[in-house]
Design a protein around this nucleic acid. Structure first.
Lengths: 193, 193
DNA sequence: CGGATCGTTGATCAACTTCAACGGTCGTGG
DNA sequence: CCACGACCGTTGAAGTTGATCAACGATCCG
């Protein structure tokens, strides 16, 4: 089915004792999807009943605030999961949009398949437990930076910690992710260099 | 061992098929601890090698920002887990302090015991996977409010969504959690009522 | 009673936003 | 291959939110 080992399989093996047979049997629960830059994987205001693992490319998750401004809450590049983890299984509406920042290939799974997969192959529980544990820990760390630093410090800290993003993601999206205006980013960059 | 069903057992049963026998065998991996108001469970700058489930009372997790101000990143009341989930298993240093807001009783587990517990009783994987999945989803939702709303809106939204906290937690800690100053909270409350 | 703790008030001030306009670049269609 | 327009970053002026600082009051608890 695959010449090269699938990226999700490689990732899952790093966190759990997933065997080749498990993987083969698990694979049909996922679907491979491709999106062109700017295309949407999910719309705010409707159920987002899938979560996605990025195999190549880059996605952003955003919402529209009460003044109509779009606000990025999360990026995902290779090996990252993205989605509305609170609602995708129950089918409630989600406020989040998911959009391709670059041409992107993902491995998606529906809430239903996700439930069945975990039931039939508990080894996936081990994997997802760790993914979420790390993601949650990282989210609290993010709050740490949001609160403890000035916007200027937040920006440069981000650029230094994730230089890769500065290359791949347009400046205005980074601004949106960090909660500042593109104009202000311009200004502090000018001061710095 | 217990007259009444343990709160952690009750909670775990809601999320996983944990049996009475599993629970009895799992119990020794945890330890029950009591803390008086203002007492610390963990110190920033050193390894926080435990995570805690609150059985009664209230805890806060905070760090000291680069100007010396303490910033609350998370509260935990009954049925909530708290800790530094990124580092507690590896024993790295953590920046976070954990302190009792009220007299509090917790069920703690060390990184080591946690690893063994999950290995011996995989049913706990199911439980923690869901706890973290929810916590991570909620963390992204929190970012949504931080970015999309003014500080005044953030404050009143929080008070309305968690009126219980407004009762139990002093105002300056809520301010710290929401990223605003106690003085500003005073001001917007004055305007409102 | 006395001190620590927490909330309040008002004046000043800085960080950051908003708005409007311009310029450069890239991709697409003619 | 050029030209046009969309898209993105930049600039600067004016405006606002919310922080800072210092002082005072109230309340709780030993």
């Amino acid at each position: 089915m695959m010449d090269k080992e699938h990226r999700l399989f490689a990732h899952a093996k790093k966190f759990s004792p997933l065997t080749e047979e498990d993987w083969q049997a698990s694979f049909p629960f996922f679907e491979t999807l491709s999106f062109r830059k700017k295309e949407h994987l999910a719309q705010g205001g409707s159920p987002n009943h899938k979560i996605y693992f990025v195999t190549s490319g880059c996605l952003q998750q955003y919402f529209i605030d009460n003044r109509g401004i779009s606000r990025t809450v999360q990026f995902a590049i290779e090996h990252w999961w993205i989605g509305d983890f609170l609602t995708f299984q129950q089918g409630q509406n989600s406020d989040f949009y998911i959009q391709a920042v670059e041409n992107t290939e993902v491995c998606g799974i529906s809430g239903e398949n996700y439930g069945q997969l975990l039931e039939k192959f508990p080894v996936w529980e081990v994997y997802f437990r760790q993914i979420y544990q790390i993601a949650y820990g990282a989210a609290l760390n993010r709050v740490k930076y949001l609160y403890g630093f000035s916007k200027e410090e937040i920006y440069f800290h981000f650029i230094e910690q994730f230089p890769e993003f500065a290359q791949r993601v347009p400046q205005y999206l980074i601004a949106s992710f960090l909660g500042l205006t593109p104009e202000y980013v311009s200004e502090i960059r000018k001061n710095r260099y």
